[in-house]
Write a protein that binds this DNA or RNA. Structure first.
Lengths: 242, 242
DNA sequence: CTTATCCGGTTGTCTATACAACATAATTTT
DNA sequence: AAAATTATGTTGTATAGACAACCGGATAAG
């Protein structure tokens, strides 16, 4: 029997969601098993059916549950249900994949945008942008050369930041922007001389090249980045849905 | 003034959603503009507030709209709002990116699974699997070498398929499986002799290597695939969310 | 003038209820 | 025995209303 707290500031549907999530991850509800019907959950939690549905809805999106109309709600098999399409920082991944992260700042400057950068940031050619070039190390080995562009007008105080510790995103959030999503395109390219040297690899070595545009809640482009990742040390996982 | 049809089989909230979507794409609602409040939409469409909310909710997920509590619902800037995390077939992408698609079947056999394949499909080592190896051409040029593995027991009638025309997914759906999502991991590797020859490129050329596991609604792995994509002719776009 | 309070508008959460659509199993009819 | 019908349980859609939380601006108090 579950007890929900009425006044701890957490919405009831969120409490329902987390209670169900716990039961799934700790095995009270086994993969493939049918959950109690909405009516039963309604009775158990002492909330209305719509509230139960709202809680379940989130778990459906996560792929932890699936439903069959007229049949029931079921726990999905363990195999996948991970959402790999979350926007994370280099330090975040370092923590979840447990490697030691270090960032070296190679360049930190203001320059005038052109072609690709201007177009991606949806600004006029010639508008000033920050350019931050960093080299990123995992467990002491270089894995990514990172070129990042941010419109100057968005966040002028960006200049006095130590980008070895504070990421540009935090700076952007301090300027009042809420980062919402990013679109990135990856392809495989061969390392040129300059890049190979920085990444301590051979000319022609395969690199995972990534272009990423980060946008705010309202769709304004906040950042455009080019990443050259060492192919032998970097992989990218995504989840696709039908 | 919008008129919703009560009995055309389309849910009211879906009609609300599509009506709003149209107004956004055709510019009746401009980027950045505030939508009429839920109350107003309720009145206009002649449906209840929860129905309006359900319709809006989908557009929020798509990033077409965003909300600020206490303020309103707004149209996002045009820039991004495309969901690139949809599971599509080779022929689907051919249509949307308008290139001519052709598939050559190199191998079509049943073999015994081991290591990576067995683990990815969540079956025992030694269980039989279909192996379908294809070479895929865009506008006549080879771009992808595709190795695909499907547990034999899922769909024995898979043997008599012409995989130049019918994709394995259609076969799986005919066997009653509903493909739900896929997890894929990409990295950049160098082409070996065999692969280089098939893809008509040089040994050592950068390839975008992709491992993909496709799972059904209930989380059962249906297919595991290895794709070797020519780096200079293939790129992959994904959308990440905070 | 500045600060504090109030007010109206908006989205967020929640309730209680009703009927539709669908799937399975049991029952009845043929 | 087979087919059609009915019954029952489940999720899907929709309603009408209520109050909470939040924001911004207007108003009042200092």
């Amino acid at each position: 029997m579950a007890v929900l707290s009425k006044d701890n500031g957490v919405a009831l549907y969120a409490q329902v969601r987390e209670t169900l999530r716990n039961r799934i991850v700790n095995g009270s509800y086994q993969p493939g098993e049918r959950l109690p019907a909405e009516e039963a959950l309604t009775a158990e939690f002492g909330v209305s059916r719509m509230t139960v549905r709202q809680g379940i809805s989130d778990l459906l999106d996560e792929g932890l549950l699936y439903r069959k109309r007229g049949i029931g709600t079921f726990v999905a098999q363990r195999h996948v249900h991970r959402d790999h399409n979350r926007l994370t920082t280099f330090f975040d991944s370092a923590e979840s994949e447990s490697f030691e992260a270090r960032i070296a700042v190679l360049k930190q400057e203001v320059l005038l945008s052109r072609h690709l950068v201007a177009r991606s940031l949806n600004i006029l050619e010639g508008e000033p942008v920050f350019h931050i070039q960093t080299l990123r190390f995992a467990d002491g080995l270089p894995i990514t050369l990172h070129d990042e562009f941010i419109p100057y007008k968005l966040c002028p105080e960006m200049l006095d930041h130590d980008f070895t510790q504070v990421l540009s995103w935090e700076a952007l959030e301090r300027c009042g922007f809420r980062i919402k999503q990013a679109v990135q395109r990856v392809e495989a390219i061969a390392a040129d001389g300059q890049t190979a040297k920085l990444l301590e690899t051979e000319i022609g070595a395969p690199l995972l090249y990534k272009e990423r545009t980060v946008v705010a809640e309202d769709g304004t482009p906040l950042e455009f980045a080019l990443c050259y990742n060492r192919g032998d040390r970097y992989s990218l996982t995504t989840t696709l849905t039908r």
